[in-house]
Design a protein around this nucleic acid. Structure first.
Length: 843
DNA sequence: CCTCATATCC
């Protein structure tokens, strides 16, 4: 039996208006005691003219409303309810608005879909209206509940959605498959995939539709590996995948770059005759495209009897995005010849192909002009001209994807300001920059190492209230790695966990890198262990982490494990492995892997790998061997090679070879002050003051300014920078020196001896020792000692290499003060615990 | 429902 609700009981029949605190309970009591029959349809209201001239206040609205009720015209047309509804909302009386709405809904003159239309742009407001409605004793229809559930998903309102799910169960409505699908959709959209699994588990007889749904949801939420597992399970149980789910599964193979699995599924598709579905064939092309298997994509494309626009587009983008622009154009012509008109997707695919594979500045400039003001075709490449003329012929109207492609192009080419202008320009063109637009800008900055800019643009993005996605997070983590912002990085990790992004392989890999470059090697390894679908990049990132922390043995173990699991190493793997060896002095292992790299793994060593080897030999004291090795290189040695030699000479005090190295370095990078300074310190060590002076003269004559050394430490939300000859000294510099001198005198009693080998000024010992005290890492560490908890680790980042004395001092601090110290210098990490450094004094 | 824009490790 349906309960009838009259509007008049939800509203005060007389003024004054109710206070907002009027409770729902009172309203309910009234409802139980009074019953008024529902209004019958009436002829059009004579009140309409009154309504169209809007009342100026809430009170006059209420009076008008009361008048309508008295004359029993309240539901004679949806217009009446509509106007009243709008007025109440205008005066922020949501309760009354809800009451009007509910009454109209009940009388059939208004529908829920009307409300959805009304608030189309603001789902949050829709939900607050629904919350008001829920306080009234009404049962909602399934249709309404499912509709609201979708809105909850959109707003990520897990609580309200959960309650609606409860109502559905209570009303016994949840057994229908389509309702189960909606509920699964909701939980998935709120990133509660565990709930989806639980829900699915509890279903006694699982409809194939639900199996398909589960697989699709997992793909849509990026859980591609899980989707593939589920797909296998389905097959095992004999449940058939429909073509839509099949398309999604192929999409997962594309995303995972799982070519082997993709091929297997292709075989399965052929057998199951799903191949006749164009949707499936097109997905196959895309899957092969993402796996760079152009030939296989082509063969699928050819096997299609009647290629659709999407088939052509898939094939064109396959060529374009894999760098085969000529083939893409050839296909384009064939498509047009076969009578199919290109659409925006076609153009955008071609454009992003150009964007990825060396689009010139002028082309971007021209596109900008076309998109913004019309065009001028001067000084352009023929292909670009063709492209644009054809676009014009086809009445090309750029969409957000077009714009975003351009933003990415600009940002990657270090023109982030132009990219930013484009973001502004999008608005002028009536579109809204989205998360992709911003992420393209941010990741472009990261690509160029402009990490600060990346973070700056992120704040801009937040101001515009654009929600970051997993791609944004991965890029931001990259910026944090570069700047060693452990706190910011950790915050991002938390954010990623809340959003479920932490299972994304890109985010996870970026996290490994961020933690290892900010000193949290343990956390890096934790993240690494959590990854279910490790790829080459994640292995590489972890190996790099171990390498930078001087854990060469662990890097090697990881490498062996990776190979055992059948992951093929690449050039980056060996860079990681060899730098692991060099930071741990593992000369034999280094040789072994350098040989294996070429012979067993068919990876051609690049200059970078040779540099690692030179460094390994030079540091180990095998300077002559290192020089021989350089002779045998198939490359002209560059500055980093000679820099490695020089570094070895510094450690092993070999002036003769150092002179050869700097001769080359002065030629290759005449403005790098570090080389001059190193050479001077070598001469100074041998008391060859005249030679040291000569180097200084050369340096000055060339106008080389020494690179400002700085160290920084983060305390709470502030980053304290200590800079050599900085513009402003740190405000607490007095206290810092006081504490530092106190510590040093304490350390002296315990055996500390100042190491002045890095000071090459011809001054007395006392003066040299004084100079040591101003080293920025000492100041930063001391500041950390003063300003953090007694048990907290101290993390200091430094832009140049740490000197012997500071290294030694840090050891004393770790032992005497019982503090863990993490020092990231220009080359690697030093972790000091109880008087020992993780580098074993080998750096 | 498939095709185009942002993505991790050097």
């Amino acid at each position: 039996m349906e309960r009838t609700i009259s509007l008049s009981h939800l509203l005060p029949s007389s003024s004054p208006s109710p206070s907002p605190s009027t409770s729902g309970a009172q309203n309910r009591t009234k409802l139980r005691t009074t019953h008024i029959p529902s209004p019958s349809p009436l002829p059009p209201s004579p009140l309409l003219p009154l309504l169209t001239s809007s009342p100026s206040s809430l009170d006059s609205t209420k009076q008008l409303h009361a008048h309508i009720i008295r004359t029993a015209h309240e539901s004679d047309s949806s217009t009446t309810a509509d106007e009243l509804f709008r007025m109440y909302l205008q005066f922020h009386d949501r309760r009354s608005a809800a009451a009007v709405f509910l009454a109209a809904l009940r009388s059939g003159s208004l529908s829920w879909s009307y409300l959805i239309d009304f608030f189309g742009g603001d789902p949050h407001q829709l939900l607050s209206i629904f919350r008001e409605l829920r306080r009234l004793p009404v049962e909602f229809s399934v249709g309404v509940l499912v509709a609201v559930l979708q809105i909850c998903a959109e707003c990520c309102d897990l609580l309200l959605g959960f309650q609606i799910h409860g109502s559905l169960i209570k009303q016994g409505l949840d057994s229908e498959t389509y309702i189960k699908c909606s509920v699964m959709d909701f939980y998935a959209d709120c990133w509660s995939l565990e709930s989806v699994d639980m829900l699915f588990e509890e279903i006694p007889v699982k409809d194939p539709i639900l199996w398909n749904k589960l697989v699709m949801l997992n793909v849509e939420k990026g859980m591609c590996l899980r989707a593939l597992e589920l797909f296998c399970e389905m097959r095992h149980l004999g449940v058939e995948a429909d073509e839509v789910a099949m398309a999604k599964v192929l999409h997962a193979c594309g995303k995972l770059e799982a070519l082997r699995e993709g091929k297997a599924i292709h075989g399965f598709i052929v057998k199951s005759r799903l191949l006749s579905a164009l949707l499936v064939s097109n997905s196959l092309i895309s899957m092969y495209s993402k796996n760079a298997a152009i030939k296989l994509a082509r063969s699928v494309f050819k096997s299609i009897e009647r290629q659709s626009l999407v088939s052509w587009n898939s094939m064109i983008s396959c060529c374009s995005l894999n760098g085969f622009l000529d083939d893409a154009w050839e296909l384009f012509d064939s498509m047009v010849a076969s009578g199919i008109k290109p659409d925006l997707v076609t153009w955008n695919s071609l454009l992003s192909g150009y964007s990825r594979f060396g689009y010139d500045h002028e082309v971007f400039e021209l596109l900008r002009m076309i998109l913004m003001e019309g065009y001028a075709h001067e000084g352009l490449h023929d292909e670009a001209l063709d492209l644009l003329q054809q676009m014009e012929m086809e009445d090309f109207q750029p969409d957000l994807t077009t714009w975003n492609g351009l933003i990415s192009g600009y940002s990657m080419k270090r023109m982030s300001m132009q990219a930013m202008l484009l973001i502004r320009q999008i608005k002028v063109n009536g579109l809204k920059p989205n998360v992709v637009s911003w992420t393209a800008l941010i990741s472009g900055c990261c690509h160029n190492g402009d990490y600060k800019d990346a973070l700056f643009f992120f704040t801009q993005m937040q101001k515009e209230r654009v929600e970051p996605n997993s791609v944004t997070v991965a890029s931001l983590l990259q910026a944090c790695s570069g700047l060693a912002l452990l706190k910011k990085g950790t915050e991002l990790h938390c954010f990623a966990m809340r959003k479920g992004f932490d299972t994304d392989i890109f985010v996870a890999t970026a996290l490994i890198d961020m933690y290892s470059k900010s000193g949290g090697l343990k956390n890096a390894y934790r993240v690494f262990l959590m990854i279910a679908n490790r790829n080459l990049a994640s292995w590489n990132a972890m190996m790099m982490g171990f390498a930078a922390h001087g854990r060469g043995k662990e890097a090697i173990l990881l490498f062996e494990e990776m190979c055992r699991l059948g992951v093929m190493p690449d050039g980056i793997t060996f860079t990681a492995l060899l730098s692991g060896c060099r930071h741990s002095g593992l000369i034999n292992e280094g040789w072994k892997y350098f040989d294996e790299m070429k012979n067993s793994y068919k990876v051609t060593p690049t200059l970078e790998h040779y540099t690692c080897m030179v460094d390994l030999l030079a540091r180990g004291g095998y300077l002559d061997e290192a020089m021989d090795f350089i002779q045998g290189m198939p490359f002209e040695p560059d500055a980093s090679v000679w820099g490695a030699i020089l570094g070895g000479c510094r450690i092993h005090k070999n002036i003769e070879i150092a002179e050869t190295a700097v001769k080359n370095l002065f030629r290759l990078e005449p403005y790098n002050s570090a080389n001059y300074l190193l050479m001077m310190s070598l001469y100074a060590y041998e008391n060859r003051w005249e030679d040291a002076e000569n180097v200084k003269i050369t340096m000055n004559a060339r106008g080389v300014r020494s690179r400002a050394g700085w160290s920084w430490i983060q305390i709470d939300q502030t980053i304290h920078v200590f800079e050599v000859d900085g513009e402003k000294p740190h405000p607490e510099i007095g206290e810092i020196y006081y504490e530092l001198y106190r510590l040093i005198s304490e350390f002296r009693k315990l055996g500390y001896v100042p190491d002045t080998s890095c000071i090459f000024h011809n001054v007395g010992q006392k003066e040299k020792e004084k100079m040591l005290m101003s080293h920025t890492e000492k100041l930063a560490i001391t500041y950390g000692l003063i300003n953090t908890d007694k048990s907290a680790a101290i993390r200091v980042i430094k832009n140049t290499r740490v000197c012997n004395d500071c290294h030694n001092t840090a050891k004393f601090v770790s032992r005497i003060c019982g503090r863990e110290i993490l020092l990231r210098d220009a080359a690697r990490f030093h972790r000091f615990v109880d008087g020992k450094c993780s580098c074993n004094d080998y750096w």
